[in-house]
Amino acid sequence: NKFNKELQWATWEILNLPNLNEEQVKAFIDSLKDDPSQSANLLAEAKKLNDAQA
């Protein structure tokens, strides 16, 4: 289903952001699991944090 694909993509993207630490990655992944419908928003937040920590 649509959410599953978005969830998988967002998870992969977050796991490959170079500037997030392990705790941050885990928090984002946990949030994705809690509410897959928010995957696009969570991914945007993760990318923002990644850029801020570059």
Results as ranks from 00 to 15, higher is better:
31 S>E: 08
38 Q>A: 08
38 Q>S: 11
42 L>Y: 14
41 N>A: 13
41 N>G: 07
43 L>T: 04
39 S>Y: 15
34 D>H: 11
5 K>D: 15
35 D>I: 04
49 L>Y: 04
6 E>T: 06
11 T>L: 14
7 L>Q: 06
17 L>W: 02
34 D>Q: 13
30 D>Q: 15
20 L>W: 00
30 D>H: 14
23 E>L: 12
52 A>Q: 13
36 P>E: 03
49 L>T: 06
30 D>S: 14
8 Q>K: 09
30 D>A: 15
1 N>G: 09
53 Q>F: 07
11 T>Y: 06
11 T>K: 06
29 I>Q: 03
30 D>P: 00
23 E>K: 10
47 K>I: 08
9 W>S: 06
42 L>A: 05
40 A>W: 15
28 F>L: 04
10 A>L: 08
22 E>Y: 11
33 K>P: 02
8 Q>E: 15
33 K>E: 10
34 D>K: 13
19 N>G: 04
47 K>Y: 15
12 W>G: 04
10 A>D: 02
44 A>F: 11
25 V>K: 14
42 L>R: 06
47 K>V: 07
32 L>P: 00
10 A>N: 03
26 K>I: 10
20 L>A: 00
38 Q>E: 06
21 N>K: 11
36 P>W: 06
33 K>T: 11
28 F>D: 00
33 K>Q: 13
5 K>P: 14
49 L>S: 02
32 L>R: 00
45 E>Y: 14
45 E>Q: 15
10 A>T: 09
47 K>R: 10
36 P>S: 04
48 K>G: 05
28 F>E: 00
6 E>Q: 07
48 K>T: 08
8 Q>A: 13
20 L>Y: 00
37 S>T: 11
8 Q>V: 08
45 E>I: 13
37 S>M: 07
20 L>H: 00
50 N>M: 01
20 L>V: 01
39 S>V: 15
44 A>M: 13
21 N>W: 06
11 T>Q: 05
2 K>G: 15
49 L>H: 03
15 L>M: 13
13 E>F: 14
19 N>H: 12
21 N>V: 07
27 A>G: 12
29 I>P: 00
17 L>R: 00
28 F>P: 00
9 W>A: 12
18 P>G: 07
48 K>L: 11
51 D>Y: 12
37 S>L: 06
33 K>Y: 15
34 D>L: 14
8 Q>S: 05
53 Q>E: 04
26 K>R: 13
47 K>D: 02
3 F>I: 14
15 L>I: 07
54 A>L: 09
9 W>Y: 12
6 E>I: 14
47 K>S: 06
24 Q>S: 02
32 L>K: 00
1 N>A: 02
12 W>F: 07
23 E>S: 11
4 N>M: 08
24 Q>A: 02
13 E>T: 14
32 L>T: 02
53 Q>W: 06
48 K>Q: 08
7 L>K: 02
30 D>F: 14
9 W>Q: 14
50 N>I: 01
53 Q>N: 06
36 P>L: 08
23 E>A: 13
16 N>P: 00
46 A>N: 00
22 E>G: 07
33 K>L: 14
37 S>E: 08
14 I>Q: 01
14 I>F: 03
48 K>V: 09
50 N>H: 02
38 Q>I: 06
28 F>T: 01
53 Q>R: 04
54 A>H: 10
34 D>V: 13
13 E>M: 15
52 A>T: 10
1 N>T: 04
3 F>Y: 10
10 A>E: 02
5 K>H: 09
12 W>P: 01
19 N>Q: 05
9 W>L: 13
39 S>T: 08
19 N>D: 05
3 F>E: 15
46 A>D: 00
26 K>T: 09
50 N>T: 01
26 K>M: 12
9 W>I: 10
28 F>Q: 00
47 K>Q: 08
43 L>F: 06
7 L>W: 09
21 N>D: 08
41 N>Q: 12
48 K>N: 08
50 N>R: 01
1 N>D: 15
31 S>Y: 07
27 A>D: 06
18 P>L: 09
7 L>M: 09
2 K>W: 15
46 A>M: 02
14 I>S: 01
36 P>R: 02
18 P>W: 08
6 E>W: 15
33 K>A: 10
37 S>Q: 08
44 A>I: 09
39 S>R: 06
49 L>M: 08
17 L>E: 00
6 E>P: 04
25 V>T: 09
12 W>E: 06
26 K>N: 08
40 A>F: 15
24 Q>M: 04
4 N>H: 13
1 N>M: 03
43 L>M: 06
18 P>F: 09
17 L>Y: 04
26 K>S: 06
25 V>I: 11
3 F>N: 13
31 S>I: 07
41 N>V: 12
52 A>L: 14
31 S>W: 10
38 Q>K: 12
44 A>T: 11
36 P>G: 03
22 E>K: 12
30 D>T: 14
11 T>P: 02
41 N>D: 08
13 E>S: 10
9 W>K: 06
34 D>R: 13
31 S>A: 12
29 I>R: 03
13 E>Y: 15
17 L>S: 02
7 L>P: 02
3 F>T: 14
10 A>M: 07
15 L>A: 05
44 A>E: 05
45 E>D: 09
18 P>A: 09
28 F>V: 02
34 D>Y: 11
18 P>N: 07
41 N>S: 11
37 S>H: 06
33 K>H: 13
33 K>I: 13
30 D>M: 15
33 K>S: 09
19 N>R: 04
48 K>W: 07
48 K>P: 00
51 D>K: 10
14 I>T: 01
7 L>H: 03
42 L>V: 14
53 Q>L: 09
54 A>F: 10
24 Q>V: 04
8 Q>P: 02
29 I>S: 03
40 A>L: 14
1 N>Q: 05
15 L>T: 10
20 L>F: 01
37 S>D: 05
34 D>E: 09
52 A>E: 11
48 K>R: 11
26 K>D: 07
51 D>R: 14
22 E>F: 12
21 N>L: 11
14 I>P: 01
53 Q>S: 05
12 W>M: 06
40 A>Q: 09
47 K>P: 00
50 N>A: 04
3 F>G: 13
20 L>G: 00
3 F>W: 07
34 D>I: 10
40 A>R: 15
5 K>N: 11
44 A>R: 11
21 N>H: 12
54 A>G: 12
29 I>H: 03
52 A>N: 10
4 N>S: 06
31 S>D: 07
46 A>T: 01
36 P>M: 06
7 L>G: 04
17 L>Q: 04
24 Q>I: 03
27 A>T: 12
10 A>P: 01
22 E>H: 14
23 E>M: 12
17 L>F: 05
2 K>E: 15
51 D>H: 11
53 Q>D: 03
34 D>G: 12
46 A>L: 02
12 W>A: 06
18 P>D: 05
33 K>W: 15
53 Q>H: 05
26 K>Q: 09
8 Q>L: 13
9 W>P: 02
13 E>R: 11
14 I>E: 01
27 A>E: 08
29 I>T: 04
22 E>M: 09
25 V>P: 00
18 P>K: 12
38 Q>F: 05
24 Q>D: 03
44 A>N: 09
12 W>V: 04
45 E>F: 13
6 E>G: 04
20 L>D: 00
53 Q>Y: 07
47 K>E: 04
49 L>A: 05
11 T>M: 14
40 A>D: 05
32 L>F: 03
24 Q>K: 01
